[in-house]
């Protein structure tokens, strides 16, 4: 792990996740420990079923661990109830998913406005418009997700993720549903926005090329974490 004098933005302590399956107990994650510092970019890599998405779900407080802690900016997210975690997410975390996860009932603009509105922002519309322009979709803000191509949908998702200026951006296979060329454009966009906003980026991928662009790479294998040296 790289040394850093600042406080970590994300701190994971002895994190374990066990589930009961028809074949007995299944250890998804075992005693995971790491820190991530502000403005770092980190790739979590590993084979399918290694536990990458489980880890990402726990970092975002979308799921609860069997044991261990996740501290976001020093706050234990599992010390909060469901609604408390939702608030923490709304205020601190942005998401980009493999399957975009846009709300089909809302236009591009309304999708981007959603997290801003949830935070009670009074300038949701102007802010959302600004970010959409930044991701190159100025002409398509009133389109619905199904009227947009995959690449465009992911741009909307990225705009939605960056609009509230989150401290931490979590991305789950952000290029997984896109062709190589579009995928590269999306990644360029993700990294440049990350740099502009000084956001901490954690992305899950099995694309080594993408992982290489991150400052740090954490490898997960059968629920255990190791870090490759930069």
């Amino acid at each position: 792990m790289s040394n850093n004098t600042r406080d970590p933005i994300l701190s994971v302590e002895s994190l374990s996740k066990r589930v009961t399956s028809p074949d007995g107990e299944l250890q998804l994650l075992q005693d995971i420990n790491f820190n991530i510092y502000p403005a770092q970019s980190v790739a979590i890599i590993g084979a399918s079923g290694a536990g990458k998405s489980t880890l990402l779900g726990l970092l975002a407080g979308l799921d609860t661990p069997t044991s261990g802690k996740v501290l976001l900016d020093g706050q234990d997210i599992f010390g909060e109830d469901e609604d408390g975690r939702a608030r923490i997410r709304g205020a601190n975390i942005g998401f980009v998913f493999q399957s975009f996860q846009l709300l089909p009932s809302l236009t591009a603009l309304e999708n981007v406005m959603m997290p801003l509105e949830l935070m009670g922002s009074s300038e949701a519309e102007s802010k959302a418009q600004e970010v959409l322009e930044r991701v190159g979709l100025a002409q398509r803000i009133h389109h619905y997700p199904r009227q947009l191509s995959g690449g465009e949908q992911q741009r909307v998702a990225i705009a939605r993720a960056f609009a509230p200026r989150p401290k931490l951006l979590l991305a789950d296979e952000p290029t997984g549903n896109l062709d190589v060329r579009t995928g590269e454009q999306i990644i360029d966009l993700l990294f440049s926005l990350n740099k502009e906003q000084n956001t901490t980026l954690v992305l899950v991928t099995h694309d080594m090329k993408l992982a290489q662009r991150c400052e740090r790479r954490l490898t997960i294998d059968v629920g255990q974490l190791s870090e490759a040296s930069a």
Binding site: R87, I88, L103, M114, L118, R160
Partner: peptide, 16 residues
Amino acid sequence: LDHAAIMRCLGATQSF
């Protein structure tokens, strides 16, 4: 169901 999950993910509370 998906809409609700996405909104939860974006920080919406249960009451919202």
